[in-house]
Design a protein around this nucleic acid. Structure first.
Lengths: 250, 250
DNA sequence: ACCTTTAGTGTGTTTTCTACACTAAGTCGA
DNA sequence: TCGACTTAGTGTAGAAAACACACTAAAGGT
């Protein structure tokens, strides 16, 4: 948890005792935070989002997106990664800026502007500490998200819309799967995100034609039926093809 | 020009004379600004961007995007619209958030985080005061943009990329044309933005099939050749069709 | 051995995309 | 007023992409 977490009461003060550090400006400044919408996927279940339960007012006890204040010397993305690490243990993930939310009344205490990011991680790949040791951190299926603090519901909706839109023409879905995955898992993922069934043969043909996946000499283990071939995504190949102006529309 | 324009020296102060207003916080806060990339189009010329010339350090004399500090009681979009109005006279335009730029060193004076917006306006529709009376405000063709202050070149590039990407699947191009326009003007606009020639018949068929345009009972005037029919864009029709999940890919 | 479950594969049909060239209507000037 | 010039406006055939669709193969479980 950040020492500058969302929960800190952030009242502008005119006079501070000399022993306390104070920062004074000629004009008032909004507080600046980052919030992260972390999507997780696991072929067994469905798309999930990582939330933390607030311990302090306002919105005490309610669920919220992980996030916190931006420090002076760090970039916005660095702040998002730091908060994610500190609050949930999540590290080394795909992270992209989503939108900046700045309605004057979005935080009842003070003017707080929040730069929202979204992250994609594989639940299978990352056995989250959050899932096990922290009672105040939990995954929620997208269709069972509790009421959220602040305008976090709006941020979440924006993130879902972005993920839906983006997955159609850029291969970011792989970030939600383990390094090695089967085509069926990939298809399930797309079906979950897009919320529509896809034809198995057309899906496979289309993806393999894109030439972004390499078939490994390995198959699934531990399944009670024919084991599927494993594939992995080739980021360098993607960069090459993108340079050449290829399309990756699903 | 905003009283809180980009040019204000923004040094954190520990002690201010009592007569002066001061704002003190327990933790340091970045300054928060908005910057606007204003695109203008005119079928005669090409895509242009609106810049202002800085009068103060840093980057004195260089060109920059219009923008300024966010006030405590206004939303980010309101701040962008206000700065646009104050600095360039531009009002009532399409405006959309682009991205938030927050590298710690993007402003040499202080930590300044900037929420960038982009705007689309019709040069023919808006006879800009900026164009006439202000020597420090000017339109530049996209292929003749001078060096820009701060990271504004990066912001501009991001805006161009966004416009290119977005115009393909959402009908925002109309914002760059006058209310009534010909199909040839519209095609020129798309060719300019996408930087590629388009087939006249295919373009017309496709657009008319989308059912977003209404043909008016009017034609061009003042042209030395057959006058083209005028059309206008139907935003409500667009909303209807969007609801029904239609595609507007060019 | 056989039952159950998922993997893996190809083709014909329909739809969409693309390339392409002439006539119509208006202005201008001789 | 006639001719020259300029841009508007229109349809179709071939190519490519999208779509719908069903059976055999392989593995583990009983």
């Amino acid at each position: 948890m950040s020492i500058l977490g969302h929960n800190e009461p952030c009242i502008p003060l005119f006079c501070l005792a000399a022993r306390q550090m104070a920062y004074t400006y000629t004009h008032p400044r909004p507080a600046l935070t980052v919030d992260c919408v972390v999507f997780g996927f696991d072929a067994q279940t469905t798309l999930q989002v990582l939330l933390i339960q607030r311990k302090l007012t306002p919105y005490q006890g309610e669920w919220a997106l992980p996030g916190g204040f931006v420090r002076l010397a760090e970039s916005l993305e660095a702040a998002a990664r730091r908060e994610l690490r500190e609050e949930t243990g999540v590290e080394d993930v795909f992270l992209e800026q989503l939108y900046t939310f700045g309605q004057p009344d979005r935080d009842p205490r003070d003017r707080v502007v929040s730069v929202a990011y979204y992250a994609l991680i594989s639940l299978a790949g990352h056995p989250l500490q959050a899932r096990t040791d922290a009672q105040d951190t939990a995954w929620f299926a997208l269709d069972a998200v509790p009421p959220l603090a602040f305008d976090h519901h709006q941020i979440l909706q924006a993130a879902i819309a972005r993920l839906r839109g983006k997955v159609r023409y850029e291969p970011i879905g792989f970030e939600l799967l383990p390094e090695k995955f089967t085509l069926t898992q990939l298809q399930k993922l797309y079906e979950t995100i897009l919320d529509q069934p896809l034809d198995k043969r057309n899906f496979r043909n289309k993806l393999l034609r894109m030439d972004l996946l390499v078939a490994l000499d390995e198959t699934q283990t531990g399944v009670a039926h024919r084991a599927a071939r494993l594939y992995k995504f080739e980021p360098q190949r993607y960069e090459q093809l993108k340079q050449q102006g290829f399309n990756f529309e699903l």
